[in-house]
Nucleic acid binder design. Structure first.
Lengths: 187, 187, 187, 187
DNA sequence: GATGAATGAGTATTCATTCAT
DNA sequence: GATGAATGAATACTCATTCAT
């Protein structure tokens, strides 16, 4: 629908942008159970148009996940030179997950259940995390058996650990990210 | 329904046991979205019978959670004397969560959304965790700012981190539990 | 269940009385949609016992209707000698219906849908009404074409007319009874 | 859903008409307990479509009531100039109620239990009845204490009185309407 | 291209009635 | 005789997806 060579018409691009923005918003608020109807309304378009751009709701969700991963990877790359890149990345990720319920819910699904595009995005995210982790490993800062995948998964875990506390302790995500990072360090 | 005075009839006890076992199983597999119909079928009873024992699906789920918390608290108390009580408890918990998706999903809901009975069970669980944590804190083994609630939440997080890896790395839960525990230790 | 010659055991009589009293109460409050469970609870007996005394819920309702008709017929006979017997009977009936929702709901069903026993009771009620009406007709007080059945039906109508006003105008039933009676009079 | 600005699509209009017609029919036959499934089947549409047009079953019922009240108010206005407007209106109403069980059942609910739209419609109906009643009062034809609300309620009562006789005496509604009207007249 | 109308499978819950204890 | 445990048909409502306009 978007893949093939043909460039999209200008208005289609605009519609798609509105749609993705609305979907991000609604998925962020309501998680994966957000309804297509609500997303369409928020985007100011018809429900049918949603399905013209994304054949299924899951495809749309995958696009949102992709955008989130874009953000995460960019941040990883930006942080790369810094000494505290890894913990900073974990804090950043946990914060993003907190603001985008559906993203982490999509990530939670096991390999087989995952949408192919989500799977690809996860791999991209893991690769970015691995780059940071590798440097930290090489520098002897974190344990030798810690992989990028572990960082990604543990950061999802940090989010889940902190989420129920959002009301009572808004900073729990940051605190837990630091605690878990501490667990990765060589002692 | 069952609590007050009179003992339950033998046949009702049998049915209830089958129901709870089936519910535990189905909730474990499918999470909180498991259907009452599936549970009833698995238990070999009618749908109506489910509601005779538990007025709502949430009440049934709360009972399953309570049973899980029973198990967790018992294990906490059993482990208490040991030096490695806390990490052992975290490993045990992560393992139990892995075998009971719905339990951790119920725990994930924030305070206000929680079923009252689930809330009470969580408090019981947190109290048990706090007992272990207190000893570890007093012994100077874990950081002074770590609370029982943190242990419970982080262990939920460990589960979420490990769950998507279940197929490819069945021991991820144990490994992550140890990593996170390491983060709690004084350095 | 009660018809055949055999006298009932003393405790069965007591149970039946409690059941009928409870049913009258519950049906009065909740109408025909009252549940058997509620009635049994109110009577302090098991649900199964209800069905031992009355094979179906409708049979029980019929018994309540019969009791109400007993009351109505007795009042009709008591009023008979009085000049204002007919309007007084209508007022009394409307009042009883107001206090026994289910009775009038049972009466509302058309001939074919009616429980046989209810049908018989209605006929008894109509006969009592006809006795009063006949005297009034003979005395030239009410129109020659007014029959006992009309009085019964119109009094049900009075109840229905007044019921929605119960909150705002508690005396509507009496007022409407008088108005309708006025319509029956020769002018 | 349909009220605001934009006109409805042609096919939606057709569907809605079929739906409303079917609902009127089914409600007329079965009263308020008519099932949405039956209505949808009768209309030849899917169950979901019913809910697209009316968010709840009660909303659908309210629309049917509104249509009936439209008819009643129109008739009241048409009859207004005639001397026998009031009794004619009562006969017309009783007849309409006889053909629309659910309408009168909706009207039967007391103020608080009524759907807001039904409440509004009742007020519209009462106002129309009051217009007729006022003229009759002013002309000294009916008692000074008779209000439009009384006329509406008593006419509902007429219907209830006549309904069980529908099989055996189809004209009972008309006869009872006249009788009750006679009761309203000054003597 | 866009729209939103239509669909129907899916779900928790209620309740009269039956029957094993 | 009495009990209450078990049953399952029945019902309103939701939502992703399809397709006529």
């Amino acid at each position: 629908m978007a893949e093939p060579g043909r460039p999209m018409r200008a208005d289609a691009v605009r519609t798609r942008k509105a749609l993705v923005a609305a979907a991000a918003e609604v998925f962020a608020e309501s998680g994966v159970d957000a309804t297509v109807a609500e997303i369409a309304t928020r985007a100011g378009i018809g429900k049918g148009t949603v399905f013209r751009h994304f054949p299924t709701k899951d495809d749309l969700l995958a696009a949102i996940v992709a955008a989130a991963v874009d953000e995460l990877v960019a941040e990883a790359d930006r942080l790369a030179p810094r000494d505290d890149a890894l913990p900073a990345f974990m804090r950043f990720s946990a914060d993003l997950y907190a603001r985008n319920r559906a993203v982490v819910e999509a990530l939670d699904r096991a390999g087989a259940d995952r949408h192919p595009k989500v799977q690809a995005e996860v791999e991209r995210l893991v690769a970015a995390a691995e780059r940071l982790t590798e440097r930290a490993r090489d520098a002897g800062v974190v344990r030798a058996d810690v992989r990028g995948l572990d960082v990604v998964q543990l950061t999802c875990g940090v989010h889940h650990a902190a989420a129920p506390l959002a009301r009572t302790e808004p900073d729990a995500g940051q605190r837990y990210a630091d605690l878990v990072y501490a667990g990765l360090r060589v002692t």
